[in-house]
Computed example of a mutant assay.
Amino acid sequence: MARSPQVAVVGGGIVGLSTAYALVEQGVAVRLYEAGLPGGGQSAGESRIFRHAHDDPRLVAFVRESRAVWADWAERFGVELVSPDGALAIGDSALERLHVLEQVGGVAARTIAPDELADRMPLLATYAGPAMFDEAGGAIRTRAAIEALTAALGDAVATAEVISIDPREDGTVEVRSVTDRATYSTVVVCAGRETARLARSVGLSLPVRLAAHVRLTFAVKGTAPARVACLQDGSGDFGEVGVYATPMPGNARYAVGLSQTVGVRDDGTFIDAAALRSLDERARAYVARALPGLDPQPVEFVHCWVTDLPWSEDGVAVWEAGPVLFVAGHNLFKQAPSLGRALARAATGGGLAAELMPQARLGEPQQ
């Protein structure tokens, strides 16, 4: 006879799926609530960059642990989850982050000369400035990861929107969704833009900034290159600072986005709707200048919400309200496996890792 779920996870993006899977690995009965399709919200799209480079050495160590889990999952599920072609970063900021990587150790990253850069990133226009190559970086196969984890969880995934979370006097937590009511020993909320709303219901005010973002996909001109690295461009040489780009499976398409976002109100309405169109236009113009190997007319658009924290665009933290944990942050896909395991430990009495507590401000540049 199946056991009643002990822990509820709210949100079926990559963090929620990783947390639920880590609980299953521990032998814990779990139910994961997702209002739509798993991975259909802030985890949408086919690709993300896996990179070790960050401004906070603690986050570098955290992401390094996550890379090992990605490799373990790829072997376990029998599918490529991170491409083998590495990640490039160009501009002075790349060298600053390389210094952080060297401080932490255990990451195969190095400066790269223009000729090798052109070989590893054949879509890029001529560039001779500072550049760093992260050998174990690469494109996360996001759809493959979402599908593998969802399949592994099976009937533990419930298609239902959670409308309330209510810690009870007996130490349990009641969760009401549009289709049921159930109680759990612990609840982990990693529901993207809905996390702050659910936190308010238990008296927590999370310092989450809600914004919107656009990512465009472009077709490669001619034959797809045999290898092509992910790219972060902080150089400004091609008219933009804060560009990221990553290949899709097969390398025939390449996704490009600007790190800038568009502000929205708490209710999700745009402060300036035209600003989203401006990001679209700027990304196309950047591709025309910097990536001549791509057709500058996009073939796909991804629009998604961004929930970031005030101390860093890479910041992440977990708030505790008794037996309920609330996870918030941005750029979480790459560290989701290790984050999920840390949340699973906390949800089963192992305690929350100190670096994930809000006062630790994980992701903040260290002096």
Results as ranks from 00 to 15, higher is better:
Leu210Trp: 05
Leu294Asn: 03
Asp272Leu: 05
Leu339Thr: 09
Ala226His: 09
Pro310Val: 07
Ala255Ser: 14
Gly203Trp: 11
Tyr286Thr: 10
Ala274Phe: 01
Gln297Ala: 15
His303Glu: 07
Ile271Val: 15
Pro247Asp: 01
Phe301Trp: 11
Gly239Gln: 02
Arg209Lys: 06
Pro323Ser: 13
Val202Glu: 05
Gln335Ser: 14
Glu320Phe: 05
Leu210His: 15
Tyr254Gly: 05
Glu240Gly: 08
Leu210Arg: 14
Thr223Val: 06
Ala328Pro: 02
Arg209Cys: 01
Val208Tyr: 00
Val306Lys: 04
Thr307Phe: 04
Tyr244Phe: 14
Val256Cys: 01
Val299Tyr: 03
Leu309Glu: 03
Gly239Tyr: 02
Gly257Pro: 01
Ser278Val: 03
Ala219Trp: 03
Val287Lys: 00
Val256Ser: 03
Met248Ile: 07
Ser205Glu: 14
Asp295Tyr: 00
Gly257Val: 03
Phe301Asn: 12
Gln232Glu: 13
Asp295Ala: 09
Phe218Tyr: 13
Leu258Ala: 04
His303Lys: 12
Val256Met: 03
Cys304Met: 05
Ala285Pro: 12
Ala224Thr: 08
Val241Arg: 14
Ala283Cys: 14
Glu281Val: 00
Lys334Glu: 06
Gln335Pro: 09
Val243Glu: 06
Gly203Arg: 11
Phe301Lys: 14
Pro337Asn: 07
Ile271Trp: 11
Asp272Cys: 03
Asp267Gly: 11
Gln335Gly: 08
Pro207Val: 07
Asn331Lys: 12
Val241His: 06
Val302Trp: 03
Asp272Trp: 06
Ala285Ser: 15
Leu325Glu: 10
Asn251Ile: 05
Phe270Tyr: 15
Asp266Tyr: 09
Trp319His: 15
Tyr286Leu: 15
Pro292Val: 12
Asp295Leu: 06
Tyr254Met: 00
Pro249Arg: 10
Pro249Val: 07
Phe218Ala: 10
His330Phe: 07
Ala328Gln: 06
Val324Asn: 04
Asp233Gly: 02
Thr307Tyr: 01
Gly322Pro: 12
Ser312Arg: 04
Gly315Cys: 04
Gly257Ile: 00
His213Tyr: 01
Pro323Glu: 09
Gly322Ala: 10
Leu198Asn: 07
Glu300Ser: 14
Val316Leu: 14
Ala211Cys: 02
Pro323Trp: 11
Leu216Tyr: 09
Tyr286Glu: 12
Cys230Glu: 00
Ala273Ile: 11
Val264Glu: 11
Val316Cys: 12
Trp319Glu: 08
Gly329Phe: 00
Ala229Glu: 02
Ser205Tyr: 04
Leu325Val: 08
Asn331Pro: 01
Asn251Ala: 09
Ala274His: 04
Gly322Met: 12
His303Trp: 02
Val302Asn: 08
Ser312Leu: 07
Ala285Gln: 15
Ala285Val: 10
Val302Arg: 11
